[in-house]
Design a protein around this nucleic acid. Structure first.
Lengths: 196, 196
DNA sequence: CGATTCTTTGAAAACAGTCAATCTGTGTGG
DNA sequence: CCACACAGATTGACTGTTTTCAAAGAATCG
């Protein structure tokens, strides 16, 4: 499992062998079975995870009691309630395993230590943070400027792997529409593709 | 103008007198007249500004040619196309002064220098970044989980000062609805308040 | 196979968007 | 100081989209 992560660290962060060794020493492997929770509402997110197998979703419950998916994570993605992680305060997010999954788990202390001692790691995370910021901006822009159908098309194009592994109703809530609407949007899109 | 900013730096960042002096030395005051642009699409956002007077909006143009407000900024707020600032790539945002405004202007080089040399400044920005992340999450959640009316109510409650200084049609695009819909939503809200 | 979960469909109601017209307030020039 | 122009806000009628609720079909898992 660590080798998978090591490859990522070399490619994305340019970590050296000795730096990898430092990371390895503090890496903790963790398995989470399908439908189990890595985090629940009201708890402090005291960790950051790197997904090596399977998939997760991060969601919040709305006023209406519905679950609204904020984020998905599959292999090579990081997962945490970053808001709670950064503030140290209890969060309002759930993190649920959508498949039998595995991740590499870092406690807050370990994480801070890695950031502080491995400049390449620090740089890599800063780059990811910037990408993340950009993704948030784009998602907000998408939400306020694009109709449901366009949002769906973009989602499929952007995350083709995700799309085939995740229940549609979760994608619907991610996009801000109901499962029924997504179903109809998909039907229309299929018809358009068939006739063109 | 700088004194206004200095107060902020002391309150939010706990900067010392000597640290303030370092900031003062590299601070550049800038005036922007109403309806003028601080940044336009396709340009690199090579600065970060701290608003000391007036107001700005950051917006993008949609596929449909409409302007979609991503963010507002008034006194004590930071303004920049952070995505472009962090990547150094040309961005797709406009920053427009909504009133005759003034800001303290930092070039990328100056900014990096401040971050590198003033730990209190660095910490303050890290805290702001975390707050910002949280705000993004909340806005996304709001967009996908709340009806237009609730989004409007929350906006008014959250930014009472903003609300009274900014044209409604910009608030509408910020919320992801048309100006007409916002007008009707407001009418309904007013009627509810009148009868209760 | 049966049970559960997920997806689709239909019909009605609620909601939001478009277009065009009107209203309101503000500021400018005569 | 008035009249006018202009930007912003509202309204009405209409259209289109999305939600809701209920039911029926797939698909999946034990």
């Amino acid at each position: 499992m660590f080798e998978f992560f090591a490859k990522y660290l070399v490619e994305k962060g340019g970590l050296t062998e000795s730096e990898l060794e430092l990371v390895r020493q503090v890496s903790v492997s963790k398995k989470v079975r399908k439908n189990n929770y890595l985090l629940e509402e009201g708890k402090v997110s005291n960790f950051i995870g790197f997904v090596t197998k399977g998939s997760f979703r991060l969601f919040r419950k709305g006023e209406d009691g519905q679950e609204y998916t904020m984020k998905f994570a599959i292999e090579n993605w990081w997962i945490s309630d970053f808001t709670s992680f950064m503030s140290g305060e209890p969060g309002n997010c759930y993190i649920e395993a959508l498949e039998n999954s595995e991740l590499i788990w870092f406690s807050r202390e370990t994480w801070d230590h890695l950031i502080a001692t491995i400049p390449n790691f620090h740089r890599m995370i800063d780059k990811l943070t910037a990408k993340n910021f950009e993704a948030h901006q784009n998602r907000i822009f998408s939400n306020i400027s694009e109709p449901a159908e366009t949002r769906y098309d973009n989602f499929v194009n952007k995350y083709p792997t995700l799309y085939s592994r995740i229940p549609l109703y979760m994608i619907a809530s991610f996009l801000g529409i109901t499962r029924e609407t997504l179903s109809r949007v998909r039907k229309q899109a299929a018809q358009r593709n068939a006739t063109s």
